[in-house]
């Protein structure tokens, strides 16, 4: 079984309109103008893994209220095994209004979701027994209000006690604290704050500093998003730059989750080879970035694009 963790999922509601007119009523008459889907980094990676053929993929996390039941059903339709703690507070709804003339994109990000201390303890119990059949666990995304910043640290500790490795995709204070437990792979994201380990990341040297600092603080391997590329910090201290060539960017949406899923796919198929797994994962991200889809369809599309990925060692 493959386990992914999403503590702060949301129902994504996208509305496609001709023109987004404030202060006026607008009517949506066709299904194609409304898209409702389950969202959350770990969950989207889980869906990709199902599409790559893994039959036993679970997503652990919190969901809330009656809309949480609806969310769970949507997830199950993708063939994912749900392992959720149900909270009193309703799950988040992210609203996107996308207009064609002119092209605009309006996003209302819902941060109202809150979990109670008892929910957190229930999640810890469920997580402990949920990971017994997984060797490599993906913990990904933000945390809801009511959850302590040390939550990932606790989850990683449980994984390590059970002899499991962790792939962590996180940011901010929750990432800072998680490093103490020395996760195997760390992928920081920092688009909200532009900060890693509380330092603003501006120029190329900052990225190198951040990668090395994350390793110093506990990460074994670091994969750092770097514009359209990635910087790879190997366990032995070497740094590599991974770059796609000859590509035509259409859509970044889903590329990061495809990357995470394909990294897992490579490790499950061939064992842990940091550089080769990244090359394969970048092929997956590129395949998504060049298409209008947000999920991988199969392995063939990854292999085709992996040849467009170049990894060069940097002298740092």
């Amino acid at each position: 079984m493959i386990t992914t963790v999403t503590l702060n999922p949301a129902i994504d509601r996208e509305y496609f309109v001709k023109e987004n007119k404030p202060k006026s009523h607008q009517y949506l008459y066709t299904e194609r103008d409304i898209k409702v889907s389950p969202g959350g980094k770990g969950l989207l990676s889980a869906i990709n893994l199902r599409k790559l053929g893994y039959s036993d993929v679970q997503n652990i996390g919190f969901v809330g209220g009656r809309q949480g039941l609806f969310f769970e059903k949507m997830v199950q339709e993708h063939g994912i095994t749900t392992n959720y703690i149900f909270t009193e507070s309703e799950i988040r709804n992210n609203i996107f209004v996308i207009s064609r003339e002119p092209v605009t994109y309006t996003h209302y990000n819902d941060y109202s979701y809150k979990v109670e201390p008892g929910d957190v303890e229930n999640l810890i119990k469920r997580f402990r027994r949920g990971i017994v059949d997984s060797d490599f666990i993906m913990i990904s995304g933000s945390i809801p209000e009511g959850v302590n910043f040390s939550i990932y640290q606790r989850l990683i500790q449980i994984c390590h006690e059970a002899g499991k490795d962790v792939y962590l995709h996180a940011s901010g204070e929750v990432l800072n604290r998680a490093l103490e437990e020395r996760p195997k792979v760390v992928v920081p994201y920092f688009k909200h704050t532009n900060k890693i380990l509380d330092k603003k990341i501006v120029n190329d040297d900052d990225y190198i500093w951040a990668g090395k600092k994350l390793q110093e603080e506990g990460a074994e391997y670091v994969m750092m998003p770097f514009h359209c590329s990635r910087l790879l910090f190997d366990k032995d201290g070497d740094v590599y730059k991974l770059t796609p060539r000859d590509f035509c960017l259409r859509n970044w949406l889903g590329a990061g989750e495809a990357y995470n899923a394909a990294f897992f796919d490579y490790v499950y198929q061939h064992g842990f080879d940091f550089l080769e797994a990244n090359k394969y994962a970048a092929g997956a991200a590129l395949a998504i970035a060049e298409s209008k889809d947000i999920f991988l369809a199969d392995r063939a599309m990854i292999k085709e694009k992996s040849d467009n990925i170049i990894i060069k060692k940097l002298e740092v």
Binding site: Q76, G79, I80, T81, N83, R126, R129
Partner: peptide
């Protein structure tokens, strides 16, 4: 059964 089942780990312990 795999095709028709509801895949959920909602459960309790003894």
């Amino acid at each position: 059964v795999r095709k028709y089942m509801m895949r959920t780990m909602n459960s309790v312990c003894e």
